[in-house]
Write a protein that binds this DNA or RNA. Structure first.
Length: 561
RNA sequence: CGGGAUGUAGUACAGCUUGGUAGUACGCUUGCUUCGGGAGUAAGAGGUCGCAGGUUCAAAUCCUGUCAUCCCGACCA
């Protein structure tokens, strides 16, 4: 690319509407341009990077034997009605009508259509396994788009789907994809962690996320330095004592606790630790109400709770509802004589003689024990805290923030049942196909790479995804020797497969240096006065290291990258 | 969807309280001088002040509505 006659611009000032570092840098450097909240144009440089990332993924997908297809974005709503996901996606699915009033959606993800495609192939167990993928635009009406390319309404995703005859087959297909994902992210140069996650709206048996580590990340990752086990905070577990206490169980006793509605007030009043308290929260899950018990110093993981209750939507109950099931003002809920089912955190199994609300305004019970009431569900529902102990090796757990750049799901037979995707087994019996689904957000990879690779001067692309490997800065376009040398080198490098920019604009050298730094080209070759001695200056964008080389040395070095 | 903020030139902002000629910096055009880390200088071009109503002799400024963008939360593969 010769800058003097190409579409190329940079901005000197920060962009007002981009708060995130990556969004701002990508806008300033002319890679992307926002058109609406969460919708972006990919400009020439941005598209180049997108294509580099896609090429890496495509190569790794193809190596697993997966075949590429391309699905439409415009999909009749009936496909999502059949799978039940029109309702699941709720407001985040775009809905529209065509001129004859037929209902369509803009596809938020494509399990349904891939199942349809798979049906064309699958008749018997002999037709599997296989894997189809695409790189295509997805549409999700996010309640709040933000952070540049990280949370957007339209984005390019690589999604792959595996089809197997049984669970063992799915395990093999899954493993293959998983390894291809690791290779892809390694090749892009993303610093990531693999974490276990909730299956969410996708459903299924297992979900693992590839999280790019960065402070701006929206997800909290819990990890252990010692055994390298990592999970999304939503479902993270910590070491918990669930063996029954050997302490002698005392008889429960009603105590007056006037005006003490919070745990801290009650504990201060009774001169007890919060750990001796069991709080009871009233939750509404779908349309049912539950009392949720956990230790006084812990918080609820609503994801875990929803799972334990097999509920879709979950929220704290309103005051009126709390007062109805407890017969008391808010702040005095407890398990004894509560008028709704009880979910108890498993940790309470190990507790004895604890404090709870009495379901009576201004009263609590002390010396409550597990035989004093009946818990309907006992499960792990606590949200863990940094420093809690790893359940596997008992080391303190650490937290970090991440951007989900990829996700792999073992879906099992959920979608094949919904979409009637079946085959005949050896015994001539109809069985459901086992599916896996695997996604990578291309734009998120781009954003994550910028978040992880930049300095005060701009972006520093890893070589594998850089839009160009090298940029030639011509110091004086009026100097014939320099101009000729720059032109020759430009042709030489491009002919050798080293994608190169020639900055031959009528600008002062400082402007060119700043621009090449901002857009993050890994290697800069400066052609100035030293060219009279046959010397080219090579500067490494990342290390700042400068070398003076002759043409052969330069070509040789760049060829080896 | 709740709370907060902002919309003025390509970009980033000032002006609004107290209504009266549309401003600054960067960018852009032309000349001269410069030319290895965002040059200096002189002269220019560029804005229906988000949009629609209203108040007023007069509205960027006051009032009402509306749209858009951002932040915090809710939500989220």
């Amino acid at each position: 690319m010769r800058l003097s006659d190409k579409y190329f611009f940079t901005l000197r000032e920060d962009v007002k509407d981009e708060d995130s570092l990556s969004g701002n840098l990508l806008c300033k450097a002319g890679y992307i341009k926002k058109t609406s909240a969460g919708i972006y144009m990919m400009l020439p440089l941005g598209l180049k990077v997108e294509e580099k990332i896609e090429a890496i993924i495509r190569k790794n997908m193809n190596e697993t034997g997966a075949q590429e297809v391309k699905m439409p974005a415009l999909i009749a709503q009936e496909y999502y009605e059949k799978s039940g996901r029109l309702e699941n996606f709720g407001k985040s699915i775009y809905k529209l009508k065509d001129r004859s009033n037929k209902a369509f959606t803009l596809g938020p993800t494509h399990e349904e259509l891939f199942a349809v495609a798979a049906k064309m192939m699958i008749k018997s167990y002999k037709n599997m396994p296989f894997n189809l993928y695409q790189i295509q635009s997805k549409y999700r009406d996010e309640p709040r788009a933000r952070f540049g390319l990280i949370r957007v309404k339209e984005f390019v995703m690589k999604d792959a789907y595996s089809f197997d005859k049984d669970e063992a087959g799915l395990d093999v297909s899954y493993k293959k994809m998983f390894e291809a994902y690791k290779r892809s992210f390694d090749e892009m140069g993303i610093d990531y962690r693999i974490v276990k996650a909730d299956t969410g709206v996708m459903g299924g048996l297992l979900s693992e996320e590839f999280q790019a580590i960065t402070p701006i990340g929206e997800d909290t990752i819990v990890y252990c330095d010692k055994c390298h086990h990592a999970t999304n905070l939503e479902i993270a577990k910590s070491l918990k004592d669930t063996t029954p206490s050997t302490e002698e169980h005392l008889a429960k006793e009603l105590v007056h606790t006037p005006k003490a509605g919070t745990i801290k007030e009650v504990c201060d009043y009774l001169k007890k630790d919060e750990k001796a308290f069991v709080k009871t929260l009233i939750y509404r899950a779908d349309d049912k109400v539950y009392g949720v018990m956990l230790r006084g110093d812990k918080e609820v993981s609503e994801t875990k709770l929803a799972k334990a209750l097999k509920a879709n939507e979950i929220e704290l109950a309103d005051f009126a509802c709390v007062e109805e099931v407890t017969n008391a003002k808010v702040g005095f809920a407890g398990p004894i004589a509560l008028k709704c089912p009880i979910v108890m955190d498993e940790e309470i199994l190990s507790m004895a003689n604890y404090i709870t609300g009495a379901n009576k305004t201004d009263y609590h019970y002390i010396n409550v024990n597990n035989e004093d009431f009946k818990a309907d569900i006992i499960a792990d529902i606590t949200l863990i805290k940094e420093g809690d102990l790893c359940p596997y090796c008992h080391e303190p757990l650490k937290f970090t923030k991440g951007i989900e750049v990829g996700n792999t799901f073992k879906l099992g037979t959920k979608y094949s049942k919904a979409l009637d995707l079946t085959y005949l087994n050896k015994d001539n019996q109809t069985e459901y196909v086992w599916m896996g689904s695997y996604g990578i957000g291309i734009g998120r990879c781009m954003a994550a790479l910028v978040e992880q690779n930049h300095d005060e001067n701009g972006i520093i692309w890893p070589l594998s995804v850089a839009p160009y490997k090298a940029a030639i800065v011509l110091i004086s376009s009026k100097d014939e020797v320099q101009t000729k040398a720059a032109e020759e080198l430009y042709d030489l490098l491009n002919n050798n497969g080293i994608e190169t920019i020639l900055d031959d604009r009528e600008e002062r050298p400082g402007v060119k240096f700043k621009d090449m730094d901002l857009i993050g080209i890994p290697y800069r070759i400066t052609i100035g006065k030293k060219i009279n001695e046959g010397l080219y200056e090579l500067k490494d964008r990342r290390s700042g290291e400068v070398k003076e080389l002759n043409k052969n040395e330069l070509l040789d070095l760049l060829n080896r990258l």
